[in-house]
């Protein structure tokens, strides 16, 4: 990693989203704020979860959802744009290894996730008192969740040949996985069947573990969540690295 290409690629990827921060940071923060205003208005007086108010429960979920969705958006949109416009050659011609390529794109995705997540937290934390009982879980799950979605973004950005194919990946996989993951509810409130279904969704463990850091309580043990999320990250990393090594759709 000492060849310089990696740090420039990482820096370029961060700069790319920062230059259009109104779209890539401000817009998702506003969306999360709207979710909070609407859902807390409707449910605040009716629901308490894990002993906290609904608004307080919802905030960490929205923050983590923003981290995940924006991590995915960063690598996937950058790669598809570069591939469709052809400027991906600027990255493929220099002496950058597939490992450097992977880490740079994923790390930039994590940074975007952190920036948007922090923005959502700052915009929403005024609406309910938030504790930070075990903050290290917050950092661990945000980092790992961001890296997982960043990797998925790399896969989607390379697999999709057109913007609508990427949109399909986003709408039919990423959105359902993130929305049906306990952002808006505790899975304990679901019928048993749907509780079981939710336990097959790895995003549930990311949200649940992340939320544990705030309240010290969660649907599952954070250690179980850590194991599931860690295994997902390891599998996706191996898969994505092999994809990049094979040159799939990048080096014919």
């Amino acid at each position: 990693m000492s060849h310089g290409g990696f740090s420039t690629l990482f820096h370029k990827e961060v700069l790319r989203f920062w230059k259009v921060a109104s779209q890539t940071v401000a817009a998702p923060v506003l969306t999360a704020l709207l979710y909070l205003l609407i859902f807390s208005h409707v449910l605040e007086d009716h629901v308490r979860v894990h002993g906290v108010t609904y608004t307080a429960f919802l905030i960490p979920g929205l923050v983590m959802m923003a981290v995940l969705q924006n991590a995915f958006a960063n690598s996937s949109s950058s790669l598809i744009q570069s591939r469709v416009t052809g400027n991906i050659v600027f990255v493929l011609l220099p002496p950058i290894s597939y490992l450097e390529f992977f880490v740079a794109y994923v790390l930039a995705s994590v940074v975007r996730g952190f920036v948007v997540g922090t923005g959502v937290l700052l915009a929403t934390c005024w609406f309910a008192p938030l504790a930070l009982v075990e903050p290290w879980w917050i950092v661990v799950f945000a980092l790992m969740g961001g890296a997982i979605l960043g990797s998925l973004g790399v896969i989607a950005g390379i697999w999709a040949d057109k913007f609508d194919e990427l949109a399909a990946f986003q709408n039919f996989l990423i959105m359902p996985l993130t929305f049906l993951s306990g952002v808006f509810y505790s899975i304990n409130s679901l019928p048993p069947f749907w509780q079981q279904v939710s336990r097959w969704n790895p995003v549930f463990y990311m949200i649940d573990g992340f939320r544990h850091g705030f309240f010290g309580v969660s649907d599952e043990s954070p250690w179980l969540s850590l194991a599931v999320v860690g295994a997902c990250l390891a599998l996706l990393t191996v898969f994505t690295l092999n994809l990049l090594k094979s040159g799939y759709k990048l080096r014919a």
Binding site: L9, K12, N87, F90, I96
Partner: peptide
Amino acid sequence: VVPQELVFDPFFTVRESLTIQSGYFGI
């Protein structure tokens, strides 16, 4: 290599593009 297709990165200025390209080569 000067590619045949007229490609560019719309996010950056000319100087930024060249500085980034230098960085890819570790310069």
